[in-house]
């Protein structure tokens, strides 16, 4: 057998799987998106139809806010946990990564228990101010839920990058007169930028496509995955659902592509 043939045989399973489960469904999705009464204009409707546009904007804003808040929180915690040894450190790390084990629906349920109509925060607020505070079902609840499952994804990447920092570079900055703030601003944070880009992109993609948590919580706000679900199941508008799916995919893919070229390394797409 020639080596060329051997390579082709080895690649065949991959090509078959890719064609069957990725290329063909995606192509079909694009075709279906243009098969409605409006044809290819359905794609335009994502931007022209207020309901779709607003949900796209809301989803992007939510995903960006989640990414920024996650990066800030995970960086502070990751730096602290990686740099300090204290009793219970490994328990804390296990706790911080625990949400990885929970499906989105459970995360949504936990947010309801925390900030829902019967939630803990509502009860405390009522006891203190006489007014019940409920934000689980609006953007605030979604944000909190997304934050909860995003932090573990980012924190592990940040901790790994912090561990790899050259301590001598920080010592060099200190020798030149830089205090703790300056060392963080000028040395540590710039060195962590590739980690921010890589983990931020995954965080953004996950938040854009999150469904379980949105399904549990998004009763007062529309995010794109929920709109797709509604069009598909309740309105049986397959064409619009497909067009929105392609639109969601393009925005997320574009974010990953930009971050990949900025980081110069491969950034995995999140599920």
């Amino acid at each position: 057998m020639s080596s060329r043939m051997f390579v082709a045989l080895c690649l065949a399973p991959l090509l078959i799987v890719a064609a069957a489960f990725f290329v063909l469904p995606l192509a079909r999705l694009v075709v279906v998106g243009a098969s409605g009464p409006d044809g290819a204009a359905a794609y335009l409707a994502i931007l022209t139809e207020p309901r779709y546009r607003e949900s796209l904007v809301a989803t992007v804003i939510l995903a960006v806010a989640t990414t920024v808040a996650t990066l800030i929180t995970a960086t502070i915690v990751g730096l602290f946990v990686q740099r300090h040894d204290f009793p219970g450190r490994s328990v804390l790390v296990a706790l911080l990564t625990f949400p990885l084990a929970l499906p989105g629906v459970v995360v949504g349920f936990m947010i309801i228990l925390l900030a829902g109509r019967q939630g803990l925060i509502g009860e405390v607020a009522r006891a203190l101010t006489g007014q019940r505070l409920v934000f689980a079902y609006a953007a605030g609840g979604l944000f909190l839920g997304y934050l909860y499952f995003s932090i573990p994804r980012v924190i592990l990447t940040i901790m790994a990058s912090v561990e790899k920092l050259d301590p001598q570079v920080e010592e060099a900055a200190r020798a030149l007169g830089a205090g703790a703030w300056a060392v963080h601003r000028d040395v540590i944070l710039p060195a962590l930028v590739p980690a921010f880009i890589a983990s931020g992109a995954i965080c953004f993609a996950t938040a854009m496509g999150a469904f379980g948590t949105a399904f549990t919580l998004a009763t007062r706000t529309d995010v794109l995955p929920m709109v797709i679900y509604t069009e598909f199941t309740l309105n049986a508008n397959f064409a619009m659902a497909a067009a929105l799916s392609v639109g969601l995919g393009i925005v997320t893919w574009a974010a990953l592509a930009v971050s990949r070229s900025a980081a110069g390394t491969s950034v995995a797409a999140a599920g």
Binding site: D166, Q168, V169, R174, L176, G177, A178, V187, P190
Partner: peptide, 20 residues
């Protein structure tokens, strides 16, 4: 007195330059 207040110059084996 911590190093940042001692005004010492330091050169490391790994150079420890700021890559950014």
């Amino acid at each position: 007195v911590p190093i940042e207040k001692r005004n010492v110059g330091m050169v490391f084996q790994s150079y420890a330059l700021f890559p950014n």
